[in-house]
Amino acid sequence: MYVAVKGGERAIDNAHAWLAEERRGDASVAELSVAQIREQLALAVNRVMAEGSLYDPDLAALAIKQARGDLIEAVFLIRAYRTTLPRFGTSHPVDTGAMACDRRISATFKDLPGGQVLGPTFDYTHRLLDFALAAEGEAPHTPEREADDAAMPRVMDFLNREGLIEEARPSDDVPPDVTREPLAMPADRALRLQVLSRADEGFILGLAYSTQRGYARNHPFVGELRIGTVAVEMDVPELGFAVEIGEIALTECETVNQFTGSKTEPAQFTRGYGLVFGQTERKAISMALVDRALRWEELGEDDVGAPAQDAEFVLYHADNIQATGFLEHIKLPHYVDFQSELELVRKLRREASADADGHQEAAE
């Protein structure tokens, strides 16, 4: 039950003013620009774009600044802004096989066509604080690198040639749009992947970790993880053909999971899949693990009761904006609700006290 509260506008205005002052911080320190956040806090920007379902680095950086670094609040701002934007068309499915890769690794094959491309990663750092970064004005060292726009074959294709992994089943069906239609159960894989792609990274990470610890039948290998840019194309009715309207950065992860088989079907590995805006590899890997766990029924496996196997539990609790709204509303005024429960508790205590006194008198 929600109770409307009137009044207190002056206090609210003062709270907003105080928030703006706190956001700015010490005025003697130079203010962060949106461009600085976009360029130097790129991973935070990528997360806000992914969970906000809007690819715009400048707007994501602005939201982070406005939210004082609270990424969930920034996602909230981006989603709210997204609802004001008109939709003027639908792009073609992007071809991640033609991705211009900045990073491309495989944990299943050491030598593969196109090679392993380590790219920008924390994987090989020592996790020691670099106090040189505290010195201002130092130009970072940029290593020489050769641009390689050649298409890199998919690692999964190597397994697919021998029938060692389940074959991907593309569909021409138009999937529902979770940004415009409420989530409904049961959800097919296309809808589940949409929800997972914009789900809270921490929640999906926790579920993925649980599958590795035994709370689902999941033994994954990273078949391929690739990060790079892909072209976005859409049809222009006046021209009668598709044109490229821009490029976006994506992280794609395909996992090789435990094999399945039967008396009539030979053993073969199964797949998990993750695709997220920007360089968001932890999220993409987690998404692939949870995707695979949710596929237990279609693969003819047993439900072992793991949280990551429960589609309704996963999908309805993965959205951090819905979770935040439901959680934080309890700090808003609930005076009438509480007073009614308070009076009920007092009444029960009075009745209990009266019963106790009655028993005492009867005993005497």
Rank of each mutant, 00 (worst) to 15 (best):
M1V: 06
A4M: 11
A4Q: 13
G8H: 07
E9D: 04
R10P: 00
R10D: 14
I12C: 04
E21H: 06
R24K: 11
G25F: 03
G25K: 08
G25E: 04
D26F: 05
I37C: 05
L41A: 13
R47I: 01
E51H: 05
Y55F: 08
K65S: 14
G69A: 01
A80Y: 06
A80P: 01
T83I: 06
P86T: 10
G89H: 05
P93N: 07
V94M: 04
V94K: 04
V94Y: 08
D95S: 07
A98T: 05
A100Q: 10
R104L: 03
S106F: 00
D111A: 15
P120T: 11
T121G: 06
Y124M: 08
T125K: 12
R127K: 08
L128A: 09
L128K: 12
G137V: 05
G137Y: 05
A139V: 09
A139T: 13
H141E: 10
P143N: 11
P143C: 07
E144H: 14
E146Q: 10
E146N: 04
A147N: 01
D148Q: 08
A150N: 06
A151H: 12
M152C: 10
P153C: 06
D157A: 14
F158I: 12
L159S: 05
E162D: 15
L164F: 05
E167Q: 10
A168T: 14
S171C: 03
D173N: 12
P175F: 10
T179F: 07
T179K: 02
E181G: 06
A184L: 10
P186V: 02
D188Y: 03
R189M: 05
G206I: 01
G206N: 15
A208M: 06
S210H: 09
Q212K: 11
P220G: 04
F221G: 00
F221N: 02
L225F: 03
V230P: 01
V232L: 12
V236T: 12
V236S: 09
A242S: 15
V243M: 01
V243W: 00
G246T: 14
G246V: 13
A249F: 11
A249Q: 14
L250D: 00
E252Q: 12
E254W: 06
Q268S: 07
F269V: 03
Y273P: 00
G274L: 00
V276W: 00
Q279H: 15
A284G: 03
V290Y: 02
A293W: 06
A293V: 10
L294H: 01
D302M: 12
V304E: 14
A306L: 08
A306G: 15
D310F: 02
A311K: 03
E312H: 13
V314A: 06
H317R: 12
H317N: 15
N320M: 09
N320V: 01
Q322T: 14
A323E: 13
G325E: 13
G325Q: 10
L327Y: 12
E328I: 03
E328Q: 09
K331M: 09
L332E: 08
P333H: 13
P333Y: 14
Y335H: 07
Y335P: 00
V336Q: 15
V336H: 15
S340G: 09
L342R: 12
E343N: 15
A352K: 11
A356R: 13
G358A: 09
